[in-house]
């Protein structure tokens, strides 16, 4: 349909005035909403989420109607979509690094270090009760545990649940836990 108009004699695609005023009205309402929400005293993460959601709605309205993307050649939509995707990729990977740094830097007394130490203790101690063995076997166990610590694969395997919980609940929560433990 649009193609046909294009070929015969690129007639401009003129929208009725009501569309422009309608979008402007919606943008004003959304602005008042985001302004009001900022005074509502919501929890910080929620109010941040609402603000970003409202801003994204406003941006979509402007791009779709004022910038004519709905009726435009799809290649222009692709250009915008790709750059927004690249931006989100950039954000997520950088924030993943930033927010998880506390988990893996050993000198910061971190979750990772705690998990590793807990795993080491588990490897070193409980079997001692079962074996109830002499000093020589105890030494051997200690050596084995140290070896496992260096490999750190065992430490990882020993605390998968804790790791999963950390990453599952969102990196912010993990970060909070990490910095909290640092103060102890």
């Amino acid at each position: 349909m649009a193609n046909h108009a294009h070929e015969s004699h690129h007639e401009p695609h003129v929208l009725p005035l009501s569309v422009y005023y309608g979008v402007f009205g919606a943008l004003l309402v959304l602005t008042v909403l985001t302004y009001a929400v900022s005074f509502a005293g919501l929890p910080l993460s929620l109010s941040f989420g609402v603000a970003m959601l409202v801003a994204s709605c406003k941006a979509t309205l402007v791009a779709a109607v004022f910038m004519h993307l709905i009726w435009d050649e799809k290649i222009n939509v692709i250009v915008l979509a790709v750059s927004v995707l690249a931006m989100l990729l950039f954000f997520s990977i950088t924030l993943m690094d930033e927010l998880s740094r506390g988990l893996i830097l050993p000198e910061e007394g971190t979750l990772y270090k705690q998990h590793e130490e807990a795993a080491l203790k588990e490897i070193a101690n409980p079997p001692a009760a079962e074996h109830g063995g002499g000093r020589e076997s105890g030494k051997a166990e200690h050596k084995a545990a140290a070896g496992a610590a260096e490999g750190s694969a065992a430490a990882h395997a020993a605390a998968p649940a804790a790791h999963a919980a950390g990453s599952g609940e969102g990196s912010a929560a993990a970060h909070a836990a990490g910095s909290g433990s640092g103060h102890h």
Partner: peptide, 16 residues
Amino acid sequence: KFGVWLFLGQEVLFFS
């Protein structure tokens, strides 16, 4: 218009 959209895509990345 395509050229301008490429420029705008760059602007998005620039501000990001």
